[in-house]
């Protein structure tokens, strides 16, 4: 059994509901986000376009974060989900750097100032600390709502099919762009989508075998929103690299400011 997710980039409407659902489900601290929508700004024929890609921890089967973790705090379950044992994590941040997808966050004190810094914590925050405690000084990431999956399976429910056993982001997606299920089951919805629609993984060159797959590649179904076909990784970097505004100049050989 290997849990996986398929993200339909055509259906995604950039509504950020998955981001919000994850935040509520896990009582995430103010400056921590496990699920993100990343925005890609491109320009085609003088028209600026924004493409968005929902990203979260890819639960890689050959996860670099698990390999580099010096305490085995990052570990992989039999069902493929990469978990963090926060009681073992020493906060070295090696996993944060080693993750090719940058899907991990170190929870420092300043990332958890409370939702209304300077004021008393809300009832929601207080309840969150009881139900889903986040240890400052350790690393955070998406866990495919493992607690929902486990609780649901104990009741005999099927993750990806039954609401109570399915990740919160999948449940909340109003466009049904997210599909969850068992990648090892060839008849599961995720396996069929990957097979029939040509699911691809991010950064395949890292050979980490992510469990999150993407299908299609245009956003919103409008021609003006389709990312340029001729883009390559290299061009992508050239076009977008703006590490502190200087990268583009550096790559073109100009002297940086």
């Amino acid at each position: 059994m290997r849990w996986g997710m398929v993200i339909d980039l055509v259906k995604c409407t950039r509504c950020h509901a998955c981001v919000a659902a994850c935040r509520v489900e896990h009582f995430l601290p103010l400056h921590v986000t496990w699920v993100k929508l990343i925005a890609l700004e491109t320009e085609t024929s003088g028209i600026a376009e924004i493409s968005t890609y929902p990203v979260r921890c890819n639960q890689c089967q050959d996860a670099p974060c698990v390999e580099v973790c010096p305490t085995e705090a990052s570990h992989q379950r039999d069902d493929g989900i990469v978990m963090i044992d926060h009681d073992k994590c020493i906060g070295c941040r090696y996993c944060v750097i080693a993750c090719p997808y940058q899907n991990r966050t170190f929870l420092s004190k300043d990332k958890n100032p409370g939702y209304f810094p300077g004021y008393e914590k809300t009832r929601f925050e207080k309840k969150g600390e009881e139900l889903y405690f986040h240890q400052v000084g350790t690393t955070q990431k998406c866990n495919f709502c493992a607690e929902r999956i486990d609780a649901g399976q104990e009741k005999g429910l099927i993750p990806g099919v039954d609401w109570d056993a399915t990740p919160a982001c999948v449940n909340t997606c109003q466009a049904r762009a997210l599909t969850f299920g068992d990648l090892d089951d060839p008849e599961s919805a995720v396996s069929r989508l990957i097979r029939e629609r040509g699911g691809i993984q991010l950064q395949e060159e890292y050979e980490t075998d992510p469990s999150v797959f993407y299908i299609d590649g245009k956003i919103g179904g409008k021609a003006s929103n389709i990312a340029p076909e001729s883009e390559t990784t290299g061009y992508h970097i050239r076009h977008l690299s703006t590490v502190e505004e200087n990268a583009k100049k550096l790559l073109s050989g100009e002297k940086a400011k």
Binding site: Y214, G217, A227, T233, Y235
Partner: peptide, 14 residues
Amino acid sequence: IHKPIVPLNSIHLA
């Protein structure tokens, strides 16, 4: 420097 997460050549375009 980290490589960008979404290189466009890995996205199949519909």
